[in-house]
Computed example of a mutant assay.
Amino acid sequence: MSASLSQADIISRELAALTHLEARIGFIARAVAGKIAFSTSLGVEDQVILHAIATTGAAIDVFTLDTGRHFPETLDTIESSERRYAPRIRLIAPNARDLESLVARDGINGFRSSIDARKACCDVRKVRPLQRALAGARGWVTGLRRGQSVGRHSIPFAEIDTGLGLLKLNPLADWSLEQVEAYIAANDIPINPLHTRGYPSVGCQPCTRPVRPGEDVRAGRWWWENEDGKECGLHNRPIAESS
């Protein structure tokens, strides 16, 4: 394993002690030796991190997974973000043969037929492309927050993704949604317009609906499934836990 639990523990403590996001991003850039990558879904948390990376000039590779099923508004958010922050956001597409085989087997909307079929779709469109994009990286920055869902309530600032053998870094782990929104307002950060139309969490267009008052922020994702453990596979890999 290229990263150690002790390193994750040290980074977690240091990040917890820092008040400002820019300071956390700067520390990550200094603490992780080697390539650091940031996978953005263009959601509000990820836009906050993108802003901090751009303003600090941290040497962090920024990419997004182009599943081929995004809302037009999400694609527009990529464009507006590139205009604001200058560097291109790398688009990582699914392998064409994998995608053709998936659709030939399950149909264009076969992901609704079963949980296994939906996970297979996520695997081809997201998980495998993510693995390619993170090849050679030592650190993986995400926009995960403890308040996003019950399944994410204990997310640390740094952990070891044992499947990928790298440090997974969550600089917004302790932020509330109110902090995210205040940071966006203070810095005039471009966001996906769907967030103002009842979509707090935006994924692929066929798999995302607006949430109703009182629902969990991720209730609109794969809404036809059971509420427990609704993840696409990007963030439920084996994680090494510290003592």
Rank of each mutant, 00 (worst) to 15 (best):
M1S: 14
A3L: 04
S4H: 11
Q7Y: 08
A8H: 03
D9W: 06
I10T: 14
S12G: 03
S12M: 05
L21R: 01
E22S: 08
R24F: 03
G26A: 06
I28A: 05
A31H: 10
V32E: 02
G34I: 10
K35E: 13
F38S: 02
S39C: 14
T40N: 12
L42F: 15
L42Y: 05
Q47H: 12
H51F: 04
T55S: 12
D61E: 15
V62R: 04
F63K: 03
T67Q: 03
T67V: 03
G68N: 03
H70Y: 08
H70D: 11
F71I: 03
P72A: 08
P72R: 04
E73M: 02
L75G: 10
L75A: 13
T77R: 00
I78A: 05
E79F: 05
E79K: 14
S81A: 15
Y85P: 03
R88N: 11
R88M: 05
R90I: 09
A93F: 04
A93H: 13
P94L: 01
N95Q: 11
R97M: 11
V103G: 02
A104G: 11
D106Q: 12
N109H: 14
R112W: 13
S114H: 12
S114T: 06
R118F: 05
K119Y: 06
K119F: 09
D123Y: 10
V124K: 00
R125K: 14
L130I: 03
A133F: 05
G139V: 00
G143N: 06
L144C: 09
R146M: 07
V150A: 15
F157T: 02
I160N: 00
G163L: 09
L164A: 06
L169H: 03
P171I: 09
D174G: 06
W175D: 07
S176G: 07
Q179R: 14
V180A: 09
V180N: 01
A182L: 09
Y183H: 08
A186T: 11
D188T: 08
P190F: 02
P190W: 02
H195N: 09
H195W: 09
S201F: 02
Q205Y: 10
Q205M: 14
C207E: 02
C207V: 05
V211M: 10
V211A: 09
R212T: 11
G214C: 11
D216H: 12
E225V: 09
E227G: 04
E227S: 15
D228W: 13
D228F: 13
G229Y: 08
E231S: 10
L234R: 00
H235S: 10
I239V: 15
I239Q: 06
A240M: 06
E241A: 11
S242L: 08
